[in-house]
């Protein structure tokens, strides 16, 4: 622990300097993301057979989802007030958001966990960039992004089946809710991963999230109250999947949209604070 004090001083320097930069250049995180994206893509383009594997897996997952939907609608004509094409839209959002999580969010968080355990996070902290930005954009799995495309196709089919169709306004609001949802899932992952500074071993976290995320396949409104609230505020799957689907099926109220925006903002600030708090507990590899 003697070394912790020295380390703390080290930690704060790279963290403080770029924050100043950030204010001048808000696009900097985006440009960093672009850079890492290019490197990651070049790296993965070497393994093109993985695309076939990913397509196969996405196909199987999609097929299973459609079978389940078929089984349910073989017995009933609506589920909790949602028709079959509306639930297809939910499924589309679920697959799309799953693609975002698996390509951009989860790989970064898993790498962060490994870095904390092995002490290699030091390499990030010595870089002259904001540490939170760095750990959030380092990884991008392009093949996992296949699900973003698959989800988009499922969504398009679902929307074409909806009687109402959607206008430009609804499409923009949908995009906004999708963005807010992705931010919330990112915050959730980072909050939990930051706990790695204290807990160190969280191998099963991936399993836990994967299991819970499956609940988003259905609108959270069908779950009993305690579960619905947990799946909205504790693990923001309701905001990430159901709310965008509501935007597409003319269910979204102004109150829900405002709540989503406010919750995303608060969660982001809390996550930022908790990350910096956690970082102070990191003692590094050499300490």
């Amino acid at each position: 622990m003697a070394g912790a004090g020295v380390n703390r001083a080290d930690d704060e320097r790279p963290d403080a300097a770029p924050r100043f930069d950030d204010r001048r250049d808000l696009l900097r995180p985006l440009r960093l993301f672009g850079l890492f994206f290019r490197v990651g893509a070049l790296n993965e383009l070497q393994y093109r057979a993985n695309l076939a594997v990913q397509l196969f897996q996405s196909g199987i997952a999609l097929g299973t989802g459609l079978i389940v939907l078929g089984l349910v609608f073989g017995q009933t004509s609506n589920l909790g007030g949602w028709s079959q094409s509306e639930l297809l839209a939910v499924m589309g959002v679920h697959i799309l958001m799953g693609g975002i999580i698996n390509s951009a969010i989860q790989p970064n968080m898993e790498r962060l966990m490994t870095d904390v355990r092995q002490g290699t996070l030091d390499f990030i902290l010595t870089k002259p960039e904001d540490a939170q930005v760095m750990i959030s954009v380092r990884e991008f799995r392009i093949w996992q992004a296949v699900d973003i495309v698959v989800g988009g196709i499922v969504l398009a089919i679902a929307v074409s089946q909806l009687q109402a169709g959607i206008g430009v306004g609804a499409a923009l609001i949908f995009a906004l809710t999708l963005f807010l949802g992705a931010v919330m899932i990112y915050c959730f992952w980072l909050l939990v991963t930051t706990a790695a500074f204290w807990v160190i071993r969280m191998d099963e976290l991936h399993e836990l999230f994967e299991g819970l995320y499956q609940s988003g396949r259905w609108p959270v409104t069908i779950y009993p109250g305690w579960l619905r609230i947990s799946l909205t505020f504790l693990v923001p799957i309701g905001f990430a999947v159901t709310v965008p689907a509501e935007a597409l099926t003319s269910r979204l109220t102004v109150e829900t949209l405002a709540l989503a925006a406010a919750f995303a903002a608060v969660l982001f600030l809390v996550t930022r604070w908790f990350w910096r708090f956690g970082l102070r507990h990191y003692s590094g590899a050499s300490a």
């Binding site: 071993r201 191998d203 099963e204 399993e207 836990l208 994967e210 299991g211 609940s215």
Partner: peptide
Amino acid sequence: SNYFYMIGMIA
């Protein structure tokens, strides 16, 4: 770890 696994499974 076992509990994480189990809650994920029970979902």
